[in-house]
């Protein structure tokens, strides 16, 4: 589905926050690789989708009322069998309801457990003076504390994309530091550039978070995504 159609559907249902499944569909339309993520509305459907995708899988709660999925027990990783999926489904439902009894639950998302890579984050927000801004940084808690991120105003040139990746202090990690697999920098640059043109063309996008993106030697893939529209 085209991003525009997804946005229209979301707005028609009175929401501004896209689910992870919707957000990744948008990424697919932009041409940014993301883990295939499907929505299961029941336990049986989750098991069947997991079988199609292939184990191991990840289950995550899909609800417009849950912002921090991990914090409320809404994420289960590394599920290897249909029994694992069944148990994870029950746990996610009960934990989510325990945190917010009124949460509107669409179901769970089922996705392939991605091979872990260097965690990178890419974000977009709107500044009061400069409009859409892209942000780049490494994932993980230390980066949040050190605020080691770089910014560029949309639209980005390819030089901007190159520079903003190389500007962060943790850049040596992306080059391959002490046995860490080096990241494919052109893939990250392309993600930034594609996002920049997408944001430029779609004024209704208020915020985007690709967090994390797993960066590998041969590419990069968004493992979680969140998009917010202007109200």
């Amino acid at each position: 589905m085209k991003a525009k159609e997804i946005f229209d559907q979301v707005k028609a249902s009175g929401r501004t926050l896209l689910t992870e499944v919707e957000s990744k569909e948008v990424l697919q339309d932009i041409g940014i690789p993301a883990t295939t993520t499907l929505l299961a509305k029941s336990k049986e459907e989750a098991q069947s989708l997991a079988g199609k995708i292939g184990y191991p899988v990840v289950l995550k709660i899909v609800s417009p009322d849950v912002v921090h999925k991990s914090d409320t027990g809404g994420v289960k990783l590394g599920l290897k069998t249909p029994e694992d999926v069944s148990q994870a489904y029950d746990e996610i439902m009960s934990s989510t309801k325990a945190h917010n009894a009124k949460a509107n639950i669409f179901g769970v998302s089922v996705q392939k457990m991605a091979k872990s890579g260097t965690e990178v984050i890419v974000g977009m927000y709107k500044d009061a003076q400069f409009g859409p801004v892209l942000m780049f940084g490494l994932g993980g808690i230390l980066v949040e504390v050190l605020k080691d991120v770089s910014f560029r105003i949309v639209p980005l040139t390819s030089r901007d994309a190159k520079q903003m990746i190389r500007e962060i202090k943790a850049y040596p990690v992306l080059e391959g530091f002490r046995g860490i697999e080096p990241a494919n920098l052109p893939a990250l640059e392309e993600t930034l550039l594609k996002l920049s043109s997408f944001v430029e063309e779609h004024e209704e996008v208020k915020e985007m978070d690709l967090n994390p993106i797993f960066a590998y030697k041969d590419g990069a893939i968004a493992v979680d995504a969140r998009i917010v529209l202007e109200s």
Binding site: D127, A128, F130, V133, K147, S150, F151
Partner: peptide
Amino acid sequence: VSSSRSLWDAV
């Protein structure tokens, strides 16, 4: 109205 220092630096 002010934007953050890091954003101005980036600009």
